[in-house]
């Protein structure tokens, strides 16, 4: 058991009750996809898992250890083992692709070393290896913001790979990309999941992508899990329950 979430609640200061007692488990090597409307609590859930936001109550267990309320050094140690990829890529725009990738390693580098940006050859080697995994080695020296959206997302994936993560969280990683690029970026997640054995939890919108890549699906609505199971079992009825009566499935290939 890699991750166990039990009865997780999150209430924001504004009063929004984003998660209402969410419980699920994730086995090692799974490709878990979380679906649901915008505002259903998908992002909040991922951000609670790596503690970018503080859960209100409930328990999160990662590798058998309760990480719900750990602080300081302990929290940093657990963050280092959980990579995260964002919808808006969140690269440092003015820096090179290579130094963006190395940023993923910051947790295990010394403060002084990382400020002077004098890294050992081993770190560079690792960074190039991660860039190779997402097939973008030739762009290592250019500025991150001169890349296309899909390429930037691949750099972001390489950055999270730099952490050697046990668990990779992806918050709508393809929501701001075109359909063709979406598919190619999703293929890198699949590659990481299959070849490196990294567990992936991914928020997605498109059911066609879900059916193709997920090994298991969780559906959230208004902060509650309303469906849990295999992707092929989501039929027309379930789809309408998850996305509302008005929804119609949009196919992307």
């Amino acid at each position: 058991m890699l991750l166990k979430v039990q009865n997780l609640h999150k209430i924001y200061k504004s009063g929004t009750h984003a998660l209402k007692g969410v419980s699920f488990e994730v086995e090692e090597g799974e490709f878990l996809v979380v679906i649901g409307l915008s505002g259903s609590g998908k992002s909040t859930l991922l951000r609670c898992i790596n503690r970018l936001i503080e859960p209100t109550s409930g328990i999160i267990e990662f590798q058998g250890k309760d990480i719900t309320h750990i602080k300081g050094e302990e929290l940093r140690q657990s963050k280092m083992q959980i990579g995260m990829v964002f919808q808006q890529f969140n690269l440092i725009k003015r820096k090179s692709v290579l130094s963006n990738v190395i940023n993923g390693k910051l947790g295990s580098l010394g403060t002084f070393e990382s400020i002077l940006e004098k890294y050992s050859d081993k770190v560079y080697e690792e960074a190039y290896k991660c860039l190779d995994t997402v097939g973008i080695t030739d762009k290592a020296k250019i500025r991150a913001d001169s890349l296309s959206g899909g390429q930037q997302q691949r750099v972001a994936i390489a950055r999270s790979l730099m952490q050697n993560p046990k668990l990779l969280l992806a918050d709508e990683p393809v929501a701001s990309l075109d359909p063709a690029t979406s598919n190619s970026v999703m293929q890198y997640f699949e590659k990481i999941n299959k070849e490196l054995g990294t567990t992936v939890i991914c928020n997605l919108h498109f059911l066609s992508l879900v059916r193709r890549y997920a090994s298991r699906v969780i559906a959230l609505r208004a902060g509650e899990i309303i469906y849990e199971g295999a992707p092929r079992d989501i039929d027309e009825n379930w789809f309408k329950t998850i996305y509302g009566e008005e929804a119609e499935e949009v196919e992307i290939r």
């Binding site: 940093r76 140690q77 963050k79 280092m80 890529f89 969140n90 690269l91 440092i92 910051l106």
Partner: peptide
């Protein structure tokens, strides 16, 4: 500044000084 890069760097397990240096400073130079 954009909060995104700050979030991304802190998600890698970087410490406070590293977050400021690598996510805040490049945006404000």
């Amino acid at each position: 500044i954009e909060e995104g890069p700050v979030e991304a760097i802190s998600a890698t397990g970087a410490n406070k000084v590293q977050i400021v240096w690598h996510a805040v400073v490049p945006q404000i130079v």
